[in-house]
């Protein structure tokens, strides 16, 4: 057990003009994650603290936030790994704050809807059988299909901060997940969206998104691959 100071961003839309920082001093048990600490504060210290959480093991994507300046999932961040006893917790940057650590993810979802985030097929599937896909073709989806829509990547992207119309790493990774699926036949429809000045060409390959992704995915690589795909399509 050790005493830690949590400096948490607070904003109550019904009371506050603007955000403020509130300090909580709590005893942290060995093995606690940042989410454990937030839960402790909410349940036993201050019930007004607000944040999203559900699965508490890094699969639902609810608890993305900025912890000591870095984006990540609260439920998967070991407090002891932060190497300090003073911990700042802020909502994800780049999205409007609703309350405390809860942001409006709608801008993120809107970008997803834009790239048509579903398999597009024209050839009818076989009846009462699966479509075939070789393990090699399936392997092309690895590193793309695992995304949990936590928003950590897009929130860390300086290009997105500057241009809110930029599709962002999350939506572009999702586009790649379909464009590289051997079963997908939506090339034209999707490329017309991403081959755009707010699409793949906007990214400056700064790799912030790669560093931010808690699932160790690589949206930058996906963006580079999409560019190649588009250029090849134009030849």
């Amino acid at each position: 057990m050790a005493e830690y100071v949590f400096k948490i961003f607070r904003y109550d839309p019904e009371k506050d003009e603007t955000g403020r920082v509130q300090e909580y001093r709590i005893d942290v048990q060995p093995g606690w994650t940042v989410l454990d600490a937030l839960n402790y504060i909410k349940w036993f210290v201050d019930g007004t603290l607000s944040y999203r959480r559900a699965c508490r093991h890094g699969i639902c994507g609810s608890c993305g936030m900025t912890i000591n300046g870095k984006n990540g999932l609260a439920c998967e961040t070991q407090i002891k790994d932060l190497g300090t006893t003073v911990i700042t917790v802020e909502p994800l940057r780049g999205f409007p704050v609703i309350k405390d650590l809860i942001v409006d993810m709608e801008p993120l979802y809107d970008k997803l809807y834009a790239i048509k985030p579903y398999l597009i097929t024209k050839t009818p599937p076989p009846t009462d059988k699966e479509r075939l896909q070789s393990p090699e073709d399936r392997a092309k989806l690895d590193g793309k299909y695992e995304c949990i829509l936590c928003g950590c990547c897009t929130s860390s992207c300086p290009t997105y901060w500057a241009d809110k119309n930029f599709l962002g790493p999350n939506a572009l990774l999702k586009a790649a997940r379909f464009l590289f699926d051997s079963r997908d036949e939506g090339y034209e429809e999707r490329v017309s969206v991403i081959d755009d000045k707010h699409g793949v060409w906007r990214c400056h390959t700064i790799f912030n998104c790669v560093e931010a992704c808690p699932k160790e995915l690589n949206p930058t690589q996906a963006i580079v691959d999409l560019r190649k795909l588009i250029l090849r399509g134009k030849l």
Partner: peptide, 12 residues
């Protein structure tokens, strides 16, 4: 099969 037709990336 319906899931597969919807696009589920099953292992193969």
């Amino acid at each position: 099969y319906e899931y597969e037709h919807m696009g589920v990336p099953f292992s193969r």
